[in-house]
Design a protein around this nucleic acid. Structure first.
Length: 802
RNA sequence: GCGGGCGUGGCGGAAUUGGUAGACGCGUUAGACUUAGGAUCUAAUGGUUCUCCGUGCAGGUUCGAGUCCUGUCGCCCGCACCA
């Protein structure tokens, strides 16, 4: 009958759906649990691309193996469904964004089901469901109550084009990550989450995670912990003082000027009348610059003298104070002490502005600043000390003077959590007439989005919800105080911060999830998704999880034990797939032409999961060919006749090695090599006189994890009534892996000269004897003296001659 | 500049972690079967002056190096004035 993939896939797709085959009873604790999670997709209008099935197939293979191994497997899927494209659709068509979003979800779900992924759809969630975002809002309220959410007028990344504020993480090169529009900095009233409060724990707990090194490193750098000293500089002839942060307090004697960021509040206060005009012009100019413009002038260090002087607390020296935009207002205290001799940036600034340079460490500063370690000079009591010693001595002195203290700073900043958008979770807080923030009572959740006639933000940054009906906007507290609802909404990240928790108990009306279930199912055992989320989503989710841990909701410190990033599938030409390059492959077309099993097999076989791999049409053909070769053994009567209930022993080694290798490789997500071994086994079956039926059944079980449709079909063809899904995972017999004879390399002076067939238990003397008789080795041994013999049993025999 | 990763046949990639380099697949070639096949099966397939040469390049350690060390070149990803 040949391999009719369309019929086979349609048949099992329907069967699995009708029978809810992959339902997971999360309250069944009788078996060990395994939680395999995919990063849930944003249901875009384009539908799935071929990158989606890659990660999804990986977790699906693991899920299927774990089920066979007797685990209770939770393998859910859902929708990260708030987002910009839906809002833009709403604005354009003046229709509710949910219409667009629900249609996309429907499309995605059909596509995903076509791939044969063993999701338990009874666990399906969407972040836009009020039953779901009720709990997103609930978590926010808990954060508010624990002082982790607050409102502030702060300079933010505002994108006029998108009409909203963006998080620092959402701004790339001064442009919005979505759309690539210009982003400017301006002060606005925003909700902020104190992620910095968790900076230390987010950093330290990275050590316990089984995550890609690069991702751990990225998070570590993003948090950017640095230890230094905060020093107070008083302003000469004034009561004012300002603080600077430095990691090189040892160079304090070399400080010849100070710099304030343009945003620093003291700039306006301190500037002298003579310098006022120049300074104000400079401050305004840098405010107008986008982040991109500010960073693109990397080499050029601009700044203006304020006209005032500060006192270096360590030696009482008067030094000039500048305003310069190479100092960031958002890091440390927004002010620095400048040591041109030992800091490259200060060096460049000092050269340009003709400022003094005092060398305080030995070394050459004629061309560049000297930033390495050396003996201190010109540093009074710190002379002769190295960096560490001078740091300690000067810090101690500053502490005695009351002018300095140890301080830890982070690059990580608090998370700007509000967006001037319609299509997001409403923030469940009301601003009362007296200006205070009132969290709405929990029994009033969910706070649902109101129906609107216009979804557009206004040009002043007023959110769309400001135009909501007054019944929605006006609020009265249970004790009769009046107020106006918050009209900002949460960012898209909110819903994805905790979705893995809701899957465990998705319909619970009374709690985020049943505590007993949470304790049993967390953490997630395996989490697979794109590397583009290495900082954003994964850092935010860890932050929320740690908060939920602190308030006793979850019992694990970290949400995701093991993380894997699937590599991107590139176009056939090795370039990134894109419409403009015309190299986009649509999974629907492949399912139509080759079938979902072939698509899955190809994507898993193409190369290591984490590597980027080019698409290959011939490779896809090859995947299908392999399925056909395996299928033929049951389908073709000549092959079928070879199946035997008696073991001829021919395939003993091949099969047992297969089971061992596939078990280990699957566990390590090494799917390409596992599949290669399956191919070897099928090749061996083709050569064999007889195929021992249980061996072939074992093969089909493992094969079905990669190709579930044809796997299930073949299982049925072998006469089974029950599904292959819950069959026990094959075992292997270690004793069958021992060969009686082995091929051992014979090398002379390290170069392989012959391969000897030897008894597996051969001794060194016997091996050497055989080696001496080798025709191939003879020319290299004749007339030589044996100096040394290296014999590694089962591996190699190396004879050193001279 | 800093951090992370990677360089192996015509191509995607293997290599028991220091022990026969090139598994498996793609492609190519030959043969079989066939009215025919771009289907299927079988076999061959790193290069080569037939003796060697081969894992980006140059050294080193070792009986033995794709694997370890030093230097160097190239590519990819992230961060980027963080004081």
């Amino acid at each position: 009958m040949a391999y009719q993939f369309k019929d086979i896939e349609a048949k099992w797709r329907k069967y699995w759906a009708d029978h809810a085959t992959y339902y997971c009873d999360t309250s069944d604790f009788s078996k060990p649990k395994y939680y395999a999670l995919d990063m849930f997709p944003y249901p875009s209008g384009q539908g799935l691309h071929v990158g989606h099935p890659e990660g999804y197939t990986a977790t699906d293979i693991i899920s299927r193996m774990k089920r066979m191994q007797g685990f209770n497997v939770l393998h859910p899927m859902g929708w990260d469904a708030f987002g910009l494209p839906a809002e833009q659709f709403a604005i354009k068509n003046n229709k509710h964004p949910e219409i667009f979003t629900r249609a996309n979800i429907e499309h995605f779900k059909n596509q995903i089901n076509a791939l044969g992924l063993s999701y338990d759809w009874t666990k399906e969630i969407a972040t836009i469901d009020p039953d779901y975002y009720k709990w997103t809002q609930w978590i926010f309220l808990q954060m508010f109550k624990h002082d982790l959410a607050y409102v502030s007028d702060i300079p933010v990344n505002y994108c006029p084009e998108l009409g909203t504020v963006l998080a620092n993480e959402e701004v790339v090169d001064g442009k919005s990550e979505v759309g690539g529009f210009d982003v400017i900095r301006m002060p606005m009233r925003q909700w902020i989450l104190k992620i910095t409060e968790y900076a230390d724990r987010l950093d330290e707990d990275l050590a316990d995670l089984d995550w890609p090194k690069s991702t751990l490193e990225m998070q570590h750098n993003w948090i950017g912990k640095s230890t230094g000293v905060s020093i107070s500089f008083s302003v000469a002839d004034s009561d004012e003082e300002f603080k600077v942060f430095t990691t090189r307090v040892d160079t304090l004697f070399g400080c010849t000027y100070c710099c304030l960021a343009p945003e620093h509040p003291l700039v306006k206060k301190l500037v002298t009348p003579e310098q006022k005009e120049a300074v104000e012009e400079y401050v305004e100019a840098s405010a107008r610059k986008s982040d991109l413009a500010r960073t693109s002038t990397e080499k050029e260090k601009t700044g203006v003298f304020l006209g005032v002087y500060a006192i270096n607390p360590i030696n009482g020296k008067k030094i000039p104070v500048y305003v310069a935009d190479y100092v960031l207002g958002s890091y440390g205290s927004g002010a620095v002490m400048a040591v041109p001799a030992h800091d490259e940036r200060d060096y460049a600034f000092a050269k340009k502005h003709g400022l003094d340079m005092i060398q305080v460490l030995e070394g050459d500063i004629s061309e560049n600043a000297m930033t390495g370690d050396a003996k201190h000079i010109n540093s009074d009591f710190a002379n002769g000390l190295d960096i560490a010693g001078a740091k300690a001595a000067i810090t101690k002195k500053l502490e005695e003077l009351g002018k300095g203290e140890l301080k830890i700073n982070y690059k990580l900043r608090d998370w700007i959590f509000s967006r001037q958008r319609y299509w997001g979770e409403p923030i469940p807080v009301v601003t009362l007439e007296d200006g205070t923030e009132f969290p709405i009572p929990e029994d009033q959740l969910p706070l649902t989005l109101p129906e609107m006639s216009n979804y557009k933000p206004d040009t002043n940054g007023k959110p769309p919800l400001a135009g909501a009906p007054s019944e929605w906007l006006n609020y009265e507290t249970p004790d009769g105080r009046k107020g106006i609802r918050e009209t900002n909404t949460m960012p898209q990240w909110a819903g994805s911060c905790w979705y893995y928790i809701r899957y465990i108990d998705p319909h619970n009306p009374n709690a985020i999830a049943d505590p007993k279930l949470l304790e049993h199912w967390l953490p997630v055992d395996l989490y697979v998704g794109g590397a583009e989320h290495a900082v954003l989503h994964l850092l935010y989710a860890r932050f929320w999880h740690k908060f939920l841990y602190d308030i006793g909701i979850v019992k694990t410190k970290e949400p995701f034990k093991k993380l894997y990033h699937q590599g991107m599938i590139l176009g056939a030409n090795g370039e990134k797939m894109s419409k403009s390059r015309g190299n986009v492959v649509n999974p629907d077309d492949i399912i139509e032409s080759h079938g979902a099993d072939s698509l899955r097999l190809f994507e898993m076989f193409a190369g290591p999961l984490e590597e980027r791999k080019p698409w290959s049409t011939t490779g896809l053909d090859g995947a299908k060919r392999f399925i056909e070769r395996a299928f033929r053994i049951l389908d073709d009567e000549n092959f079928r006749a070879k199946l035997s209930d008696e073991n001829s022993g021919e395939l003993d080694y091949s099969y047992n090695f297969l089971v061992k290798k596939v078990s280990a490789d699957f566990e390590a997500l090494g799917f390409n090599t596992a599949i290669a071994q399956m191919m070897v086994f099928i090749n061996d079956c083709y050569k064999a006189e007889k195929i021992y039926r249980p061996y072939f059944e074992g093969f089909v079980k493992m094969f079905s994890c990669v190709c579930p449709f044809v796997g299930e079909e073949m299982w049925q063809m072998m006469g089974h009534k029950d599904l292959i899904t819950f069959e026990p995972w094959p075992a292997y017999d270690e004793s069958k892996l021992k060969k009686s004879t082995i091929n051992m390399a014979l090398s002379i002076n390290g170069k392989t000269r012959d391969v000897l067939e030897l008894d597996a238990e051969v001794t060194e003397e016997e091996a050497v004897k055989v080696a001496m008789a080798s025709e191939k080795a003879k020319p290299f041994l004749e007339g030589k003296t044996i100096r040394k013999v290296i014999f590694v049993k089962g591996r190699i025999l190396n004879i050193v001659v001279a």
